[in-house]
């Protein structure tokens, strides 16, 4: 799906070059500048193959043109990336579209628009050191399988190196 004059998404936005600076400021975000829109990232993108609305080339184009609201808003397509890294394999320009998409996600988080699971996983690591919960059932299964009990997690160290609000 290439953007055309008839694409309403293209028509309604003014180009915001300042968005490039913002994207450049987060880790790996600068890579979007290398994109020359060849589309090599699209054909083998599984998310694109299963949902044409997810298109890594168009996400790069929207980043270049500064479609900030569309990319960072609550319903942004960036959250349908499979994180499979195939786009990184195909890209001849070292854009690593997946890494740009992760940079966009970091910006979306700053605007409070990320899906709840992002905050949930983060808080779980911050508060417990892990993303999964232990339980008496887990303890019993581990014992049955001949595994030693789980130790404690150094939560104090985690909280010291993360920005605690």
């Amino acid at each position: 799906m290439s953007p055309t004059k008839n694409d309403p998404a293209i028509e309604k936005f003014d180009i915001q070059f300042s968005f490039r600076e913002k994207l450049n400021s987060v880790a790996e975000g600068f890579r979007h500048n290398y994109c020359y829109q060849c589309g090599a990232c699209v054909a083998d993108c599984p998310a694109n193959n299963y949902d044409e609305h997810f298109n890594p080339r168009l996400i790069m184009l929207k980043a270049i043109l500064g479609f900030e609201e569309e990319l960072l808003g609550a319903d942004s397509e960036i959250w349908n990336c499979t994180n499979c890294y195939t786009c990184s394999e195909r890209c001849p320009q070292d854009v690593r579209p997946i890494d740009v998409i992760i940079a966009l996600k970091n910006l979306s988080v700053l605007q409070g628009n990320a899906p709840p699971i992002v905050g949930n996983i983060y808080n779980s690591v911050l508060q417990t050191g892990t993303t999964t919960k232990s339980s008496s059932l887990v303890d019993r299964r581990r014992k049955e399988l001949g595994l030693s009990p789980l130790g404690s997690y150094p939560i104090d160290e985690i909280q010291k190196i993360l920005k605690v609000d």
Binding site: V26, A27, E28, N83, I102, A103, K105, N106, V109, A114, I117, V118, G119, N120, I121, Y122, S124, V125, G129, T130, T131, G151, Y153, P154, E157, I158, I161, L162, K163
Partner: peptide, 18 residues
């Protein structure tokens, strides 16, 4: 003393430096 790796999808999406 190991913790979560941390998670490459959601934790990375939250803040890459962290």
């Amino acid at each position: 003393g190991f913790t979560c790796c941390p998670d490459p999808i959601y934790f990375q999406a939250r803040d890459k430096i962290e």
